[in-house]
Design a binder for these strands. Structure first.
Lengths: 219, 219
DNA sequence: ATATTGCAAATTGGATCCAATATATAATAT
DNA sequence: ATATTATATATTGGATCCAATTTGCAATAT
């Protein structure tokens, strides 16, 4: 008799665990810009040696999320306002293109999933959750494009600015405006109007960029 | 008396050296798709221990240039024809945008530098050099945009397909066509016609994609 | 002959140790 | 008191060692 081959939970390597945890902490903004990442301290936190920690830091550096100097260690990478601005422009270009490709490939399930993220988004009162749901909403739509490389790059760009985006959502009318614009994008998708979805996505991103830049300048 | 603080040749870390060397070897195609990267072997080659090698491999993995499996090691990441196709589409979108932004910011020096790369390109008979000069030509023009994040992403995408691009250049009329199209792009830049530079760049990339895909399918 | 089992070698992941460098602190000179 | 030097501590980079896992190969059974 032959048994079905079961994937016994391939427990991830320590370095992968540390990497994911640090990445999440940086993206969410729990680790502040410029905050040093002490290998020893992190190793103790995860009950490992410094080796997996160093591999994790190497990978984070490659993603641009931390900056290291030889013998001085790694710190959470800050980001200049001009770079924030450039990354939002980049996102506008790319995400517009991706959603345009995605629209003709969206299933009913995709659209209803996006809609429910949208509803959770307005229902939620936890600012930390807004960022996640915002991202899930967009990501659900983008996935339909089938463009895995494009989506990978989109996610990498988002990782770099996610914490600022979250901050932007908490500004006065950030949530409200985001929700209106999400509905507009969703509507375009449901109408199968790819060009409109593209334009609205770009406006959504460029609008967020402007309020964010103004906010950064004002202090 | 106070001496000027001199930056004594900050010799790079071993892991950085190994990383750069492996990256170059993969990009140039010296390491073939699927070829395993043995930590021990590489460590001996560079007279180091396996630790820096592992950090280098971690970083390469993050860039998508190698794929690792726990306890099985890392291999040079192959790439499916569909992914090649997607990356060329991605490049067309992005590089078109970048050169469009770059055109109004191009100095005389930029243009003459690009022109000389172009001339070296036609003069060279070494297929390996073609790839380098091709890349230097485009890069020189893109740099003028000042869009460092965009350019970083462009380079990462190029790194993934560089070896296939080189192969494409060596095809029958690859060189000849590339040169004609380069001249066309350069002409558009010199005429300060940003839209034309954008369109020609996109056609250049999509044309290369088509010949490459046909070539991949034919065998 | 083919498939299965049981080692032995090879290879990777991680821990511990040492060397190189940076940072903080105390001692000294002006 | 301030600035400079010397010293101690902390931290990172890398080497070596051990454990976990895979892979290759021989022995065995059918």
């Amino acid at each position: 008799m032959k048994l079905e081959s079961v994937d016994i939970s391939q427990t991830a390597s320590a370095s992968a665990i540390v990497f994911e945890a640090l990445k999440r902490a940086i993206i969410k903004g729990e680790l502040k810009d410029g905050e040093p990442l002490r290998q020893d301290e992190i190793a103790r936190l995860f009950n490992t040696s410094r080796i997996p920690v160093r591999e994790a830091i190497s990978r984070l550096q490659e993603q641009g999320l931390v900056k290291s100097q030889r013998y001085k260690g790694a710190v959470v990478a800050g980001i200049a306002p001009e770079e924030v601005s450039e990354i939002f422009d980049f996102r506008a270009l790319l995400e517009g293109h991706v959603i345009e490709q995605a629209v003709p490939r969206m299933s009913k399930e995709t659209l209803s999933a996006a809609r429910s993220y949208c509803e959770e988004f307005v229902a939620s009162s936890d600012p930390m959750e807004w960022g996640d749901l915002n991202r899930k909403f967009h990501s659900a739509l983008y996935q339909a494009s089938g463009l895995s490389y494009h989506n990978g790059v989109v996610n990498a760009a988002l990782d770099r600015v996610d914490r600022y985006l979250r901050a932007q959502l908490t500004l006065t009318d950030g949530m409200e405006r985001a929700n209106i614009e999400h509905m507009g994008i969703l509507e375009a998708c449901e109408k199968q109007d790819a060009k409109m979805a593209c334009d609205r996505t770009r406006q959504h991103i460029l609008g967020a960029k402007n309020t964010l830049i103004n906010h950064l300048k004002s202090k």
